[in-house]
Design a protein around this nucleic acid. Structure first.
Length: 878
RNA sequence: GCGGACGUGGCGGAAUGGUAGACGCAAGGGACUUAAAAUCCCUUGAGGGGAACCUCGUGAGGGUUCGAGUCCCUCCGUCCGCACCA
């Protein structure tokens, strides 16, 4: 019997080498078996993997190894989201070239990932900074341009003053840059846009089909797209008051029913009408300037007072030429949404009510809540936005809100002023086009040439890729491509005259919007995809990654897939059939007396009874044990995966990552938990050693009959097999691991009992143990692949467990001849009853009623009813 | 404000409407040891009882049901996302 400890640091590299030499994780596109595509979000090559990666990639690897053993042709690739700003920052700070820095990091992280024992097909590795990758992205940019899905337009953009670049709306969080955290400024720039809004309705509707996505992500995407139905109303302006050339004001409203409650109009400070009105009105111009200074930071918006400035312009009510409404410029109106103008109905909109209360314009209710006397219904400082009956609204009086909306729409649609109807039904979306221009070096060049004579000219496809120049300097702020001596100077492809390259590069989210497609055939050089190959592999069956990409990456990828479908590169619209968002890895924090943080590796935690005390290893200084936070450099509460793998082994890290918390929730990394995983590894190893010795005495042929103890072992094994399989299918990894431990406990006890009884095992028992040990090893193989190989070999097998099929469940073993049912009296458990499996309900009823415990609990009452739920429970009602 | 998720022992958590607390961590006791580490065994929701067993118990209150952690309603709390969106 092997009593030696399992030596992970020796065994793990040895098995990794075997897997690699035999190439068992390479996936062939020609493999005819049913496919399964499992993918984890590829990493940015920052230089070191962190525990979040370990968690993410372990989950994916469990699925990959499990599905492989189920006989599926599994695609499980890995690559690098390799463009981006940290490389440029490194170039500035450390005087290294972004490319060298990136590829060094890739090499380092690749070796770390390999030490985790992941079953990846490294032959398909791609890096988005490789011209062999981004040339296809440039090709698709041109295809999208031709298809009308790319647009160049001047627009107000989010400018990050620290990173010196433009940000997409999705990359502005609370008014700050998502990377720099600097307050974002507004600038007017000419930018390239992907027309994601062309798919607004489709992106929204298709969310309903994503039934294997977390509800949370679906809701977030729905809200982000932000669809609302309403009416576009053209208000005529009173000519006596309107600025020259202005004769109407367009307003989008979702509440046309409240038109008779209108008290004012308001336009955004940057609305053309405001600009026109301010021309001859210095006080208004000053007010507009003040609004623009206010900024868009969240604190400012929340606390800012609703302010307006009466322009003196009067708008005419669409149903009453005599009814004049004052037009204000107001600081709370957004130019970005709708038409940048509203009509204000204070009685039924809180924001409008706050506004009129400030300017004394009054409020007339036009919707009366059910059961309220309309003559007594008044609005003072709380607006009513519920349902009800129309009042004070002329021809709408008595209608419901819905009927009134319809009636107003119908009348204004058919009323023509000028050449157009006054009202038009419209759907508005919050979603904006995706601005992809970035004023950075380390990104995919936009394949465009600007010619003074010909304008914007696409780079001819024969000239792709447009490759980034290597000889660039980072000694000054700004875009190195812009000041490169030669790179941007080219001949115009159309007229041959002097022209300039576009020096902006693409947002790195473009790179990650299609990498999952490229993985299906990363070798094809002539096109972004091999269409039949891509169509066979896609969609990704299971995608796993962090919730932080709920909108950004996941929405962009959905758009990109549609754009690729429209340009013939793929044959589907939804890239990810199943999505799983994993929780974060968190750790308690340690704060020194001076307020700075200490790392877990610098701290010793002692437990004395219920009290935990932490001291610095170096000095013995006591440190405060603080709150549990996401692992971060700033809180210094990170644990280095390398250290864990060196000390305990990759299998321990993998096992612990899966064991403690449900995979979609945060997991708390604790030293105790890791040691628990390590102990279990050692126990498994010992048990397999004992099982191997015992199993060696077993007959080769399956015995005809099994003794009770042997049968018990077999039932345990097959029961665990069924439960573990189901738990993996549902991605309930923590539960799955609990079942494996349960199986271990039972098998261990059974073997121990035989040892204690002396006399040696019977052949049938030895056979059952050998079978159970084989099953056990196969069950934990997806989580701890190295230990599993070592155990598999110790059990005398010459194959690799990684290539073994998942064992079939012997269903017959899961069906008991007799079953023990809990017996309740009035819903409380009072006894148990053991009956034959196929016992009739009346037989069970009879058996239950004679039980002492039941009689006692009934206290002499006559049972009114006995409910027998077959195979489940018996409840006596008395 | 709107939307979503969640609330179970000392802790992480388990439980297709059917025996609440699987599995682990921590803790306590014991065995082995000169001792420690490692390992193994036992106990561990609260209260009562020598024991069999009994009572209470899944944020609070109500409801549906033979039966509710699970379904419905109201409320409280925590976390997350969105937010001057007309």
């Amino acid at each position: 019997m092997s009593t030696e400890r399992y030596n992970a640091s020796e065994a793990e590299p040895r098995w990794q080498k075997v897997w690699e030499e035999r190439g068992i994780f390479a996936t062939a596109n020609s493999d005819p078996r049913p496919k399964y595509y499992v993918l984890e979000m590829f990493p940015y090559p920052s230089g070191r993997i962190h525990m979040g990666h370990v968690r993410n990639y372990t989950m994916g690897d469990v699925v990959a190894r499990y599905k492989r053993s189920m006989g599926l042709n599994v695609l499980h690739p890995m690559g690098w989201d390799a463009f981006g700003m940290p490389a440029e920052n490194a170039a500035i700070e450390r005087k290294v070239h972004p490319k060298a820095w990136t590829y060094d990091n890739i090499a380092a992280m690749k070796s770390q990932l390999k030490s985790m024992g992941l079953s990846l097909d490294w032959a398909r590795e791609v890096a988005t900074c490789d011209p062999a990758y981004y040339r296809h992205q440039q090709k698709m940019f041109l295809d999208f341009l031709r298809a009308g899905l790319v647009e160049r337009k001047q627009s107000k953009v989010n400018w990050d003053p620290v990173d010196q670049t433009v940000l997409a709306n999705e990359q502005v969080i609370d008014g700050r840059g998502w990377r720099s955290n600097a307050p974002v400024e507004q600038r007017e720039l000419t930018q390239w846009f992907f027309k994601i809004t062309a798919f607004s309705e489709d992106l929204l509707r298709a969310i309903d089909r994503l039934d294997r996505w977390p509800e949370k992500v679906r809701v977030m995407q729905r809200n982000w797209i932000g669809r609302s139905e309403g009416l576009l109303v053209r208000f005529a302006l009173d000519p006596a008051t309107a600025p020259p050339g202005e004769n109407e004001l367009k307003v989008f409203t979702t509440r046309p029913d409240t038109l008779f409650g209108a008290k004012f109009m308001a336009v955004a400070p940057d609305h053309p009408l405001a600009t026109a009105a301010a021309k001859d009105n210095p006080a208004l111009a000053e007010f507009i300037a003040e609004c623009k200074r206010q900024g868009t930071a969240q604190e400012v918006i929340e606390t800012a007072e609703k302010k307006g400035f009466d322009t003196g312009i009067r708008a005419i009510h669409p149903f009453d030429p005599a009814w004049k409404l004052p037009v204000y410029v107001a600081n709370f109106i957004l130019m970005d949404y709708g038409t940048g103008a509203i009509f204000g109905c204070p009685a039924h909109d809180q924001r409008d009510l706050d506004f009129v209360n400030k300017y004394g314009l009054g409020a007339i209710p036009v919707v009366c809540p059910p059961g309220v006397d309309p003559t007594k219904f008044e609005i003072t400082d709380v607006a009513y936005d519920g349902d009800g009956t129309m009042i004070n609204s002329r021809f709408l009086d008595g209608l419901t809100v819905e009927q009134a909306k319809e009636e107003v729409a119908r009348r204004l649609e058919s009323e023509i002023r000028g050449n157009a109807p006054v009202g038009e039904r419209q759907v508005q979306y919050r979603l904006r086009d995706w601005g992809i221009s970035r004023q950075r070096y380390w990104g995919c060049p936009i394949p465009i040439i600007h010619c003074d004579a010909c304008g914007v000219v696409p780079v001819p496809e024969k000239d792709l890729p447009v490759v980034l120049p290597d000889d660039v300097t980072f000694d000054r702020p700004g875009n190195p491509l812009d000041r490169h001596p030669t790179w941007k100077h080219v001949a115009c492809p159309q007229c041959g005259g002097a022209a300039r390259r576009e020096t902006d590069t693409m947002d790195t989210f473009v790179d990650s919007s299609w990498y999952f497609v490229r993985f299906t055939d990363p070798w094809i050089a002539t096109a972004p995809t091999s269409r039949p190959v891509a169509d066979r592999w896609l969609p990704v069956d299971q995608y796993i990654g962090g919730i932080e990409h709920a909108i950004l990456h996941l929405l962009y990828s959905r758009f990109f897939t549609r754009a690729m479908e429209a340009t013939g590169h793929v044959g589907l619209d939804e890239p990810f059939a199943g999505l799983f968002t994993q929780g974060m890895v968190v750790h308690e924090t340690y704060q020194k007396q001076d307020g700075s943080f200490a790392m877990p590796s610098e701290v010793k935690v002692e437990v004395n009874g219920e009290h935990r005390r932490a001291t610095l290893l170096a000095t013995g200084e006591e440190v405060n044990i603080g709150s549990i936070e996401k692992m971060s450099k700033s809180k210094r509460n990170t644990v280095d995966p390398d250290d864990i793998i060196t000390t305990y082994g990759a299998d321990v890290a993998r096992w612990f990552m899966l064991s403690d918390s449900p995979p979609d929730r945060d997991v708390i990394w604790t030293e105790e938990g890791v040691q628990g995983a390590w102990r279990f590894v050692q126990r498994l190893w010992r048990l397999i050693g004992e099982a191997a010795e015992l199993g060696a005495t077993a007959p080769a042929e399956r015995p005809q009959d099994f003794s009770a103890s042997a049968l018990a072992v077999r039932k345990t094994a097959h029961g665990a097999l069924a439960k573990v399989s189901e738990a993996i299918e549902r991605l309930h990894f923590n539960v799955c691991l609990a079942y494996i431990r349960e199986f271990y406990n039972t098998l261990n006890a059974a073997i121990g009992e035989v040892g204690a009884n002396g006399g040696g095992p019977t052949p049938d028992f030895a056979w059952a143990v050998r079978e159970a040990a084989d099953i056990l090893v196969k069950l934990f193989h997806p989580m701890m692949p190295h230990l599993a190989e070592e155990c598999w070999a110790a059990l005398g097998h010459k194959t690799l467990v990684a290539e073994e099929p998942w064992p079939p469940v012997e269903e017959g073993l899961l069906i008991e001849d007799t079953i023990t049912l809990p017996v309740q009296v009035n819903g409380r458990k009072r006894a148990e009853v053991t009956v034959p499996r196929n016992a009739q309900n009346y037989e069970i009823e009879a058996a239950v009623l004679v039980l002492d415990a039941v009689q006692k609990a009934l206290e002499g009452r006559v049972p009114k009813k006995v409910i027998v739920v077959p195979q489940r429970i018996v409840n006596v009602v008395g």
